[in-house]
Design a protein around this nucleic acid. Structure first.
Lengths: 252, 252
DNA sequence: CCTCCGAGTTGAACGCGTTCAACTTCTACT
DNA sequence: AGTAGAAGTTGAACGCGTTCAACTCGGAGG
């Protein structure tokens, strides 16, 4: 399989299964190195923004070669995935703590979302890029991508706790997919936050304070017979369309 | 792409006074040239997708130099703006026609959305890129950008007609912001459509058929006293947060 | 005729993300 | 110790979007 290096003709791609950084074996030193590169990248992203930070700058600052950065991360985007993981982890801890004193569903939800804003705020400068990539179905950063599933599941689990720890009485039939609904509400808030230019995301916080009680009120409505069919159908819809359930295999 | 290059100057009429991209003087020959480049670009986007189509390929295919393409369009993204305008214009015509026979709000909404899918379907291959850019607040492609306002207003106007032509009885207080709500529903459908991999967007159409009646049902609910406060608050929320209201910016 | 000027046009060049063949270092096993 | 092979590392090179100094062209004024 010897191809002349200068004639780079033909379709190179379509081999989508790049097993570069996946669960491959990394030595202890490799783990260190990977962390070093990631930390450097996030620091530069925070300081200069995502687009203005070059892979060459990251490599130089971390004291490695460009190629080496690519040995640990498949792409520049993958570095953002790591950022998202980090934010998510911090969010989980903070959210569970801050919602603990509350029993009211709206209050718990608001605490949850405020916790997210607290954690994510330092990175707002380059969060745009995250959302931009998240919206691309082919990106590993897509919320529906296999790569994102573990993180996403963890976040949804938080929303489950929001519901479970509350004193709200909820139609058990819709209770199960409620966390996913709340997750979507969360995503909406995130989208607003990305656009938000007010200092300290004050406007997003205001939005949270006003939507959280509303969401709680809507959920409380589900007990009434008049609207129950509507809720059932909405629930079914969400299950059918938004939750992939079990997609057998993508590349195997 | 049924319209020949001649149609380029006609239908928009709204120059928006945007001095953004070469709003400078263009000779007759310049207009032709610009249209030629645009048509070539859209054709290649449709054939090969957005990312795989290079500016060099567009230039070569159109018989001009790369630099010349940049003389008429500030960036590759700006070519997509043109695509969005075109889709919107066709959608408006088709939607108004196809919803005319219906009086039921759900049916009218479904007709509207199906019309959009019909028009946009050929471009699904590179629609991802549009959404990706649309989500960037700094992009001229953002739905909230001044550049997009004329197009967006036209689309929202269609949604106003959806409501006005129906026999639904709606709390007048919420009726006014209803078009914007429907527009957001539309955006949600678009987002799903971008992810949709089913042939002919069948799954998105299914989603439309199921959500449109639901939306209509929710709107019908607004008459009931029990939920009216909730609707009022939701309405106020939308006004306060999602509609910029009075931006004293363009074209006095 | 020539000159001037600005719209139109060019392609080499820049900086970017990414790839790759070749190289070095470490680990495991004989 | 020796050695195979995996893990780690390198920088030049590729193709991309974009920029820019220099060019051509056409018509208005002398």
């Amino acid at each position: 399989m010897a191809e002349p290096s200068e004639a780079r003709t033909g379709p190179t791609g379509s081999d989508t299964g790049a097993p570069r950084d996946r669960g491959e074996k990394l030595t202890a030193r490799g783990d260190e190195r990977k962390a070093l590169i990631l930390d450097t990248a996030l620091r530069l992203f925070e300081r200069d923004g995502y687009e203005k930070t070059t892979m060459r700058a990251i490599a130089r600052e971390a004291g490695v070669s460009v190629g080496n950065a690519y040995y640990y991360f498949d792409s520049k985007d993958h570095l953002i995935q790591a950022f998202y993981d980090e934010v998510s982890d911090h969010h989980i801890v903070r959210a569970l703590t801050s919602m603990r004193p509350h029993r009211d569903l709206g209050a718990r939800l608001a605490a949850d979302l405020h916790a997210w804003i607290d954690v994510a705020e330092p990175y707002r400068a380059f969060a745009t890029q995250f959302v931009k990539n998240a919206v691309d179905p082919n990106s590993p950063l897509s919320p529906f991508s296999p790569e994102s599933k573990p993180t996403r599941d963890k976040v949804i689990e938080v929303h489950r706790r929001v519901v479970l720890g509350s004193n709200a009485k909820i139609d058990p039939e819709i209770a199960e997919s409620l966390p996913d609904l709340l997750w979507m509400h969360h995503m909406g808030i995130v989208l607003f936050w990305v656009y938000d230019r007010s200092p300290d995301a004050r406007r997003t916080r205001e939005l949270v304070d006003r939507t959280a009680p509303m969401v709680a009120r809507v959920i409380r409505l589900s007990r009434f017979k008049m609207v129950r069919p509507l809720f059932r159908e909405a629930d079914k819809l969400i299950r059918d369309f938004l939750l992939p359930g079990d997609e057998p295999a993508d590349r195997g």
